[in-house]
Design a protein around this nucleic acid. Structure first.
Length: 554
RNA sequence: GGGCUCGUAGCUCAGGUAGGUAGAGCGUCUGGCUUUUAACCAGAUGGUCGUGGGUUCAAGUCCCACCGAGCCCGCCA
């Protein structure tokens, strides 16, 4: 970043062709010189030196900044969009996060940008998905915004899936201007582009044929009227157009509707939208990117029909779930909502931030996810990755520790007590802090429930139900004494365990096992020192003493 | 059949529009802290850059061919 600014802030001077030789990049103060000269010099040694200098600009730059740099000098509208035909999963989410990152990068570079999200709620329901009841069969072909909500509580089908998604956007600190396509159409924003499309039917058909190599069917129209009788978009055929669209429908009816009663087919809708919203940057999945795919046809329609330069494409790869492509309809998916139940939002952002859009991501909610969390928490707070991932108001408590905490605490109050004892201060009068902590705790609790391997799960037992041998009792007794004597911090406790074991000639591992058995009834558990100080001190003392009861007393 | 994207250390990835001595994190190993337990510190280890050609004084980087993975070309976003 810094190097880049230096590079670009340097004006080209009049003696640009004077060789400027330096041994190290730091010594060079005018990279423009080096750039020019490396191209014209024929002396290999000189070239080497010059190029070495130029190399400096190849220092790590985040992909979002690189895109922003490429786009510099113009006002931008970044358009994202997802069809709310089912639960929106994290694969879909890549589109919006990618857009947001570019948006932030442009802003950070001092540019002007707007982020837009378009909910394609006018798209027809393609089929009755497995998660829908039989009664939905009759809605196939109707716009999503005209179909009743599955839970009966939202305005319509589209809103049902949109609501949790929009809420997730908030959590992810993504704030696009939100459009719903039914509003864009019915409010007349698309009037113009629809008219042009219908009038250009022949030319559009030709473009589609030329780019995708497919003949469009007889009587094809870029506009799908919505049949006022059966409410469907997919069953109508356009017969004629003057001011109104004349159509016939498979339901047997025919008639005329206005151009606000319907929708452009996807391949035309896309470029039309670019024109209407002045879109200049468009992230999209690789499915649209192939030759003859919808970006190709869209770009031509945009130029040739709408006279609009198509937006800068940003192609992103799919996110797979343990190797399988995500698909809500096949049940192979993790919804954004679900993921945010399990990890804080910055982790989801980081997952997208850390790799270039064209890189494929395989998602595994179990251990890999935890590694992702660790990696993020270890990240240098000043790094660009951290900056781009970071979401305001995040509790600064390691997730792994929280996993221990929530398994000790029985309720919200105890969470704060446990945190306090283990050295994390939370100002409980600060509502936002409290909220942040509870939200992280809820993530951890959910993660344990859903994905934790057995080894990481534990429960503090109500009573000791294990008997110990003499050595073990001795070790535990001495620990109890230490706890009684004074308060210790986690490290001290941890050290004491080793010391006590050594004092009585016991293998430390045996003492650790005994401790875990006393409290958890298992031979292993979270790091002992940190675990023990998380518990109430009196309880620890009492429990250690209880371990003395049993066969040696009788 | 046509096309798009990806292939760099054991793993995850930088090295994107500028050819110039192959990088980071994690892991692994070693050493240290009277210390294997879900810890910390220090150091070390690690790659014929998918393969084969070509251009060049110089190629992970540019060109061609091939291999492997995924996807698109069914108007369906």
């Amino acid at each position: 970043m810094l190097f880049n600014r230096l590079f670009f802030d340097h004006p080209l001077t009049s003696n640009a062709f004077t060789p400027l030789l330096t041994d190290t990049a730091e010594e060079c103060n005018d990279h423009q010189h080096c750039q020019q000269n490396s191209q014209f010099s024929h002396d290999p040694i000189e070239k080497t030196k010059l190029n070495k200098c130029m190399r400096i600009k190849n220092e790590r730059m985040h992909w979002a900044d690189a895109i922003a740099q490429e786009l510099a000098g113009k006002k931008h509208v970044i358009a994202t969009g997802i069809t709310p035909s089912g639960p929106i999963h994290i694969g879909n989410m890549r589109e919006v996060i990618t857009g947001d990152l570019i948006y932030r990068a442009i802003k950070d570079a001092g540019g002007d940008a707007t982020l837009v999200y378009i909910a394609d709620n006018l798209d027809p329901l393609r089929k009755r998905y497995p998660f829908l009841g039989k009664e939905y069969e009759k809605y196939v072909g109707m716009p999503l915004c005209d179909i009743p909500c599955p839970c009966g509580e939202c305005e319509n089908y589209a809103e049902h899936f949109l609501k949790p998604f929009l809420k997730s956007l908030e959590k992810l600190d993504i704030h696009p201007i939100i459009y719903r396509s039914d509003e864009l159409y019915t409010h007349g924003k698309f009037d113009e582009v629809i008219k042009i499309a219908i009038q250009s039917t022949e030319r559009i058909a030709k473009i589609l044929k030329e780019t995708s190599g497919r003949d469009v069917p007889e009587g094809w129209s870029p506009f799908m009227p919505k049949c006022p009788f059966c409410g469907k978009l997919t069953t109508t055929r356009v017969l004629d157009f003057s001011d109104m669209v004349e159509f016939e429908c498979e339901c047997g009816e025919e008639g005329k509707v206005g151009i606000r009663e319907g929708k452009l087919v996807w391949r035309v809708d896309w470029p039309a939208r670019w024109k209407v919203l002045n879109v200049t940057v468009e992230p999209f999945g690789k499915d649209h990117a192939a030759a003859g795919g919808s970006y190709d046809t869209g770009a031509r329609i945009s130029r040739e029909i709408y006279g609009y330069e198509p937006p800068h494409p940003v192609v992103y790869e799919w996110i797979t779930l343990k190797g399988k492509p995500m698909s809500s309809s096949k049940g192979v998916s993790v919804t954004v909502e679900d993921m945010l139940k399990v990890v804080p939002p910055d982790i989801l952002r980081y997952m997208i931030v850390r790799v270039k859009p064209e890189k494929h991501i395989d998602f595994d909610p179990q251990i890999t996810l935890l590694q992702l969390v660790d990696e993020f928490e270890e990240l240098d707070r000043g790094s660009r990755e951290y900056e781009l991932s970071h979401v305001e108001l995040q509790a600064d408590i390691p997730f792994r520790h929280m996993i221990t905490v929530v398994q000790i605490a029985k309720n919200d109050d105890q969470i704060f007590e446990v945190l306090e004892r283990s050295g994390y201060k939370v100002d409980r009068s600060d509502k936002r802090q409290v909220e942040a902590v509870l939200s992280l705790a809820s993530n951890a609790r959910e993660w344990v429930k859903m994905y934790a391997p057995e080894r990481m799960k534990f429960e503090v037992k109500e009573r000791v139900d294990v008997k110990f041998d003499e050595k073990e009792r001795e070790g535990l007794r001495r620990l109890a004494e230490l706890f009684e004597k004074r308060e210790m911090d986690a490290k001290e406790v941890h050290d004491s365990i080793y010391r006590v074991a050594n004092e009585i000639g016991m293998k430390p591992s045996k003492l650790f096992e005994a401790i875990y058995k006393v409290f958890l009834g298992k031979k292993y558990g979270p790091r002992a020192g940190w675990f023990l100080v998380s518990l109430p001190r009196n309880f620890v003392i009492q429990r250690l003493k209880e371990s003395q009861e049993g066969n040696n007393e009788s």
